[in-house]
Design a protein around this nucleic acid. Structure first.
Lengths: 344, 344
DNA sequence: CTGTTAGCGCTTTCAT
DNA sequence: ATGAAAGCGCTAACAG
């Protein structure tokens, strides 16, 4: 085959390597390596000459080859159950931002709330040799979750507890937030309250329950069992649970909701049954998603920046990576109460 | 150093390699490689024996080493301007899902609407040797965008045109959607309309404008210049632009909006100025984001599943990768008109 | 059906 | 301040 004559562009073009640069610059590959890694102790003129060749040839370091020898990929795994959910999308954004600033990239796995896929994702990320992982997983039982995390040199779980030898943890203090939200209700004279609990098996659900009961105890209030209604954490779930609660106790004066979606559903149920919010019934949500400010009446809720949560998780992971630090951190972030029209 | 006696667990544990498996199983590394890659034409007993050793040792293939030799990382780059925006979050989810099913992982870059970061992301993904990229970029000018894409063997751009030798393209037919939405307005007797255009420099803005003008021409309607009001693509932008339009033309009977956020803003402006929607003024949005169904009155809009859009982009990219196919594809997806209360 | 040899592109270690 | 040699863990190409 004759070279250079009407040769078609190859589909997989051979890329410029460190060897090409070294040859053209008349130095060893080692010297080129020193330049691209910005290592000190080099003749300034040599560095400039090599850099010029790099630019001329359009050389780009191969991160895969580098990863093989250094055993670091500068990549973090991020596992979320549903990126289309604004809650997780913002966590992703916060984590990606911090990682990016530190030179790390994010391998994203959306498990679609599927436990099988969560397990598979954790395995795939290990094969890809990520330097660490951030995992948002509410459903996987500890007994299978923790051994999976232990295989990582560095892991951070979000909104869940983990033993210090397994992973670091960054979470919202739902208990405290819920306690203050319910206290706010009592302070404004509400007594006849019900709790739309969501599904209580997960960490966040249990924490909210703890906070709710702490607030009751603070106020010396005791509630019948039918004031607790479990429901899917969705608008539809909220509609149904609120309807059930109002049927059981028609003179209810407040609905405490698992999250803002449930609260929006509660708003709709109140409207369709002729209850005015907040005059007849106060409604409080949880998480402070963007929608909370946009519905009518706007929602009293508590929460914090999910972007901060993701950023904190990433910073925790990077600290562990960069300090070659083995001890786990526990970050518990305090949410703030946002008082709007639904429970003034 | 004595081995095995109170030896502390190393921070970076030496992992099991294909060589370890080969030695324990009493075969060559090649045979192990054949097993982990499921290659046909092997003695079934050998395969089983090797597999048993793999399981016992907990061997996990090193994707980095594999990537170095095969020149394929089974990783796709995905660049979006803002994952916290539901529009892009759903695209990410659709793309991730398709990629995952095909055994590919997603390296996510959120550029935060920053052109510099977009360029840097495209470079970083190249260094990481992704097999292809999906890029959502509205702002980067063609003159800098296209050369960047050309460096990739396979690229897909979303909601933007690209020359066939640069990238494939998957986009929503905004022009057609807008044309039908405006026709719907005319059909219900509206004549006195204004267009809150967003910022027109980007592809989507120009396409919407094309569709809007086509609808005018279809109906034989001519509009004064002050019926076009540009605005940021946000709720606040919509409030201001709608206010301006209603001040300029108090007897307006319809507002066509760049997207649903602008339309929500228009709704708020109408309410605060005493216009009833849809009795006095009809409002139509674009994109059909989840919020569109939740506001009061609910929003007439057009759009399609963003998840599908992302999935289509990923499928287009994978087809190119898997068929070693060099030719670009053009996917133009037709949005559907969703008639709700704001423009019945 | 299985083994041997070579090498992917880079950094590490040790010389010079 | 620079270079030479070795090897990271794996697969491709060929041989047997």
């Amino acid at each position: 085959m004759l070279h250079g004559l009407h040769q078609p562009v190859e589909y997989t073009l051979k890329r410029v390597t460190i060897i090409d640069v070294a040859r053209v610059a008349g130095v060893s590959t080692q010297t080129v390596s020193r330049v691209i890694n910005n290592r000190p102790g080099m003749n300034a003129a040599t560095r400039l000459r090599v850099q010029a060749v790099i630019d001329k040839l359009g050389y780009e370091p191969n991160a895969v080859a580098r990863g093989l020898v250094t055993n670091r990929t500068m990549t973090l795994g991020l596992v979320v159950p549903d990126v289309a959910n604004a809650f997780f999308a913002e966590i992703v954004q916060g984590a990606e931002d911090v990682a990016w600033q530190a030179g790390y990239s994010i391998l994203l796995c959306d498990t679609r709330e599927d436990i099988k896929r969560e397990i598979a994702a954790l395995r795939s990320l290990r094969e890809r040799r990520v330097d660490g992982v951030i995992v948002c997983s509410a459903r996987l039982p500890n007994a299978t979750f923790w051994p999976l995390l232990e295989q990582y040199g560095a892991a951070v779980v979000v909104n869940r507890r983990a033993p210090a030898d397994v992973a670091s943890s960054v979470r919202i203090d739902y208990a405290s937030g819920m306690r203050r939200a319910v206290a706010h209700l009592f302070a404004s004279g509400r007594r006849n309250i019900a709790f739309l609990t969501g599904l209580v098996q997960a960490f966040g659900g249990r924490e909210r329950m703890r906070g709710f009961e702490a607030a009751l105890e603070d106020a010396g209030v005791v509630l019948a069992n039918d004031r607790y209604v479990s429901c899917p954490p969705t608008i539809e779930g909220g509609v149904e649970a609120a309807s059930a609660a109002l049927s059981a106790t028609p003179d209810l004066d407040a609905l405490v909701c698992y999250n803002d979606l449930v609260a929006v559903g509660a708003l709709q149920a109140c409207a369709s049954r002729g209850y005015r919010v907040p005059e007849d019934v106060a409604v409080v949500g949880c998480d402070d998603i963007p929608l909370a400010a946009l519905v009518t009446p706007s929602l009293t809720t508590f929460g914090l920046s999910k972007r901060d949560l993701g950023a904190t998780a990433a910073r925790t992971l990077l600290a562990r990576l960069q300090n070659h630090d083995t001890r786990a951190e526990e970050g518990v972030l305090e949410p703030s109460l946002i008082v709007r029209a639904s429970a003034p």
